[in-house]
Amino acid sequence: MRRSSSLADRLFWPIVAGGAASLWVGPKALAVAGLVVLGLVMHRLGRGGRFRRRVRAIARRHRETLALRRRQESYVDPYGNEILDGWLRERSYFAERTLLPRLEAEGYGDLVEARWDEILDIVEAASLSVAAPDEAAALPEDGIAYERYCAALLEQAGWDARTTKAAGDQGADVVAERDGLRLVVQCKRYAKPVGNGAVQEVVAARSYWGADCAAVVSNAGFTPAARKLAAATDVLLLHHDSLAALGTRPGGRPPR
C-alpha cells in the first residue's frame, strides 16, 4: 500500500530553504517560507475531509447496485431477526475491490486502515439511500405464485417466458426464450439463503431443456457453497429485482 509523505517531511525543506534564504535576502524570504508552511498545514488538515468526500462520491456512483445487493444478501430468519452476514461480506468486498484501489491511486492509501470502519459506514449509508420496492405488498407468498411472478418479470424484459408443470420439469420452473436463446430458471421464494442443491437442479435442467443458459432466482441471498458451484457451472444467481432488466450480451449470454 502506497504511503503519502508525512507532514514533517513536507515541512522540512520549505523551512530549511526559507531559513537559508532569509540569511541572504532578509525577512521577506522567511515570510514567503512561512506562507508555504501555512499552506501545507492547511492542505494537510483538510485531507481527512477530502478523503471522506472521495469515498462518498465513489459509493454514490454505485448506490443502486449496493442497494440491490443489500436486499439480495439479507433476509429475516424464522425468529424475526434480520440476518446481514451475506451483506456484510459484500460490503467489505466492495470496499476492498472497488474503493481501496482508487483511494491508493489517489494518494489516500495511508488513511485506509485507520478509517476502515468509516469507509464501511459510508458504503452502508449509500446502500440505504435508495428506496427499496414495497415487496411486502407485491411479492407472492407461495412458490407457484412466485414462479409466475418471475416469469412476468422476464416478460417485461422482452423474453417469451412460461412456467413449467410441477411434474416433469427436471429442475426448471420457468423456461424463457429471446433472440434465439433459451434460459431455464429455478425460482426459490425462501426465508433463508439458497443452497447449492438449487444450482445442481438447474444445471440438470439446462441439459434436459437444451438451454443456452441457466439461473437460480430468489428473494433471498445464496450460500457460499451455492456461489462456488454456480461459478464452476456457469449458472447465474439473481435476485428477482434483476429480472425486469435482464437482457442479452452480444454473443448471446444474459449479463451476470
Rank of each mutant, 00 (worst) to 15 (best):
R2H: 06
R2F: 08
S4R: 14
L7Q: 05
A8I: 14
D9R: 13
L11D: 10
W13P: 11
W13N: 14
W13Y: 11
I15D: 13
I15K: 09
A17G: 12
W24K: 07
W24L: 12
V25S: 02
V25I: 09
A29N: 11
A31G: 12
G34K: 01
V36H: 07
V36D: 03
G39S: 08
G39H: 07
V41L: 13
G46L: 04
R50C: 00
R50F: 00
R50W: 15
F51P: 05
F51L: 03
R52H: 09
R53F: 00
R54P: 14
V55W: 04
R56K: 05
A57L: 15
A59M: 01
H62M: 05
H62Y: 05
H62S: 02
E64T: 12
T65E: 11
R69D: 00
R69Y: 00
R70I: 06
Q72N: 04
Q72R: 05
Q72D: 04
E73V: 00
I83D: 08
G86N: 06
W87A: 14
E90G: 10
T98G: 08
T98N: 09
L99S: 02
R102L: 09
E106Q: 08
G107Q: 02
G107H: 12
G107R: 09
Y108I: 06
G109V: 10
E113I: 13
A114T: 15
I119C: 05
E124V: 02
L128Q: 12
S129M: 02
A132H: 03
E135W: 08
A136T: 12
A136V: 09
A138V: 08
A138G: 09
A138E: 09
L139F: 07
D142Y: 08
D142Q: 01
Y146G: 00
Y146C: 03
R148C: 03
R148N: 10
Y149E: 05
C150N: 03
A151E: 02
L153H: 00
L154C: 01
A157S: 12
A157H: 10
G158E: 06
D160Q: 09
T163V: 13
K165Q: 12
Q170G: 15
G171N: 05
G171T: 07
G171L: 04
A172R: 00
D173I: 06
D173V: 00
D173K: 02
V175C: 13
A176N: 11
E177W: 14
E177N: 10
R178H: 15
R182F: 04
L183S: 11
V185D: 00
Q186I: 08
K188E: 10
R189D: 10
Y190F: 11
Y190Q: 03
Y190N: 08
K192P: 15
V194K: 07
V194Y: 01
G195P: 02
G197W: 13
G197C: 04
V199N: 05
V199I: 13
Q200L: 14
V202A: 03
A205K: 05
R206Y: 04
S207A: 14
W209G: 07
G210V: 12
G210R: 14
A211Y: 06
D212T: 01
C213L: 14
A214F: 07
A215L: 06
V216T: 05
N219M: 01
F222W: 01
F222G: 04
T223S: 00
P224W: 11
A225T: 13
A226I: 05
T233E: 15
D234T: 15
V235M: 04
H239N: 12
H240Q: 04
D241A: 14
S242V: 06
A244T: 11
L246D: 01
G247M: 04
G251F: 06
G252R: 01
